[in-house]
């Protein structure tokens, strides 16, 4: 039995059915997604590849509930989130999705700890300080809690970004070119953390990338072109990131 069919047997977490997304650019209608069908199971680690303009970022936005499809259905953990209001989407993002961005998107004026705390401000939980410190500890940055982003290296900033994505204990982690701005050593570190989160905590991880090397760290690669999935195959022998020197 192949990896992929096994994935289908598992509880399907993300279910895109014939999803289109059409943007109005002046008089021109541009279809960023053109009938996408995709199913991702719980606990998978998936890479989405494609050239710029292939629609991979738009698909990430839909999966991450930042945007709603023009037509088609998006079922997230059994809930149809395709037609939710802005505020309902915000709640879904807050509870289920963690984002990791290429440019980190940290608040420059806030400390690492305050940045990690941010998603907690928009939920109902307590113990913000403690939970944020735990998340920072998981990425090995407990010692840098009081530093501002400008005082951290690129790799460290991205680790703060991952801690922020983790703090609400999401079921999905979406990483849009997470290593795009990093050197190879930092990239390896980041991939190591993402793999560990997938392996040890069962978080579903979806990584948008155009680097085959990064895609090689995942179990499954989905390729896109012109707003459609053109290829979807399992990775025979996923590379395990060699993690060294992350101080815990």
């Amino acid at each position: 039995m192949s990896d992929r069919s096994r994935a289908h047997e598992r509880n399907s977490m993300i279910e895109l059915e014939n999803v289109t997304k059409i943007y109005q650019m002046g008089n021109l209608k541009v279809a960023a997604l053109n009938g996408v069908n995709l199913s991702i199971g719980e606990g998978e680690i998936v890479a989405i590849m494609g050239r710029s303009g292939s629609g991979k970022s738009t698909m990430m936005n839909v999966i991450g509930c930042l945007d709603v499809p023009t037509s088609g259905q998006y079922i997230l953990e059994g809930e149809d989130v395709g037609q939710l209001s802005d505020d309902r989407l915000a709640v879904v993002r807050n509870r289920k999705v963690g984002f990791v961005f290429q440019t980190y998107n940290l608040l420059a004026r806030s400390t690492a700890l305050a940045n990690v705390e941010l998603p907690l401000l928009y939920g109902n939980g307590k113990d913000h300080r403690r939970r944020s410190m735990e998340a920072l500890d998981r990425v090995g940055l407990a010692g840098r809690a009081g530093h501002r982003p400008a005082e951290l290296s690129g790799g460290e900033q991205q680790r703060v970004g991952i801690a922020r994505a983790l703090v609400k204990e999401p079921t999905i982690l979406l990483a849009d070119e997470p290593t795009g701005n990093l050197d190879s050593r930092s990239s390896e570190e980041i991939m190591g953390i993402l793999q560990a989160l997938n392996r040890e905590e069962g978080i579903t991880v979806i990584i948008v990338t155009h680097e085959p090397d990064i895609a090689g760290h995942t179990n499954r690669v989905v390729s896109m072109r012109d707003g459609q999935v053109i290829d979807d195959k399992a990775v025979a022998n996923p590379r395990q990131a060699v993690v060294q020197g992350i101080e815990r």
Binding site: A90, R95, F99, N105, L107, L118, Y122, G123, K168
Partner: peptide
């Protein structure tokens, strides 16, 4: 910053 806060789950009201 507003975009980041919204991605993290801030509602309009927030």
């Amino acid at each position: 910053e507003i975009g980041i806060r919204k991605a993290m789950g801030a509602k309009r009201r927030d």
